[in-house]
């Protein structure tokens, strides 16, 4: 059940992300990139196998790997979130600059019929 929900979430997020990414307005592009990066983050998390109620850090004298979850993808997800967040913020600044300079929020910098 958990697998199905997760797979659906990744699928819906990336499908909407790709659709928005291909839209002509810069706001839609940045929303698409954000949704895609959420999908990718969940995907990285899923690559560490799904396991509920298992801690990622060893505790006490129990060294049975089956009782712990894989910590590496969690560390990777953290890094990926930070980087994609920072770069999305930077992209937002560029989009605002482009809007200010060209006077249009079309990705080509001009209205299609202009």
């Amino acid at each position: 059940m958990m697998e199905l929900v997760l797979a659906l979430a990744i699928g819906v997020l990336s499908a909407s992300g790709v659709w928005l990414l291909l839209r002509p307005r810069t706001f839609q592009v940045i929303m698409g990139l954000s949704l895609l990066s959420y999908a990718v983050n969940i995907f990285i998390f899923a690559m560490g196998r799904l396991k509920s109620g298992a801690p990622p850090v060893l505790k006490g004298d129990v060294f049975d790997p089956a009782r712990y979850t894989d910590p590496t993808p969690q560390a990777l997800v953290l890094t990926a979130i930070v980087i994609s967040f920072a770069l999305t913020a930077l992209f937002l600044v560029v989009i605002l600059t482009a809007r200010g300079i060209t006077g249009s929020d079309h990705v080509d910098g001009k209205e299609p019929d202009a």
Binding site: L21, T26, V29, L33, L36, S37, V40, F43, I44, A46, M47, G48, T72, P73, L76, A80, I83, S84, L87, T88, L90, F91, V94, I95, T97, A98, I101, T102, V107, D108, G109
Partner: peptide, 30 residues
């Protein structure tokens, strides 16, 4: 204007490529 317009495309393309990078790395790790 020319730089900002070109930069917009450059950043969008490379952000998307970075997401592909992450998908590839995590599949290989998986």
């Amino acid at each position: 204007e020319a730089r900002v317009r070109a930069g917009l495309i450059y950043i969008a393309v490379n952000l998307t490529a970075s997401l592909l990078f992450l998908i590839g790395v995590s599949l290989i790790y998986g």
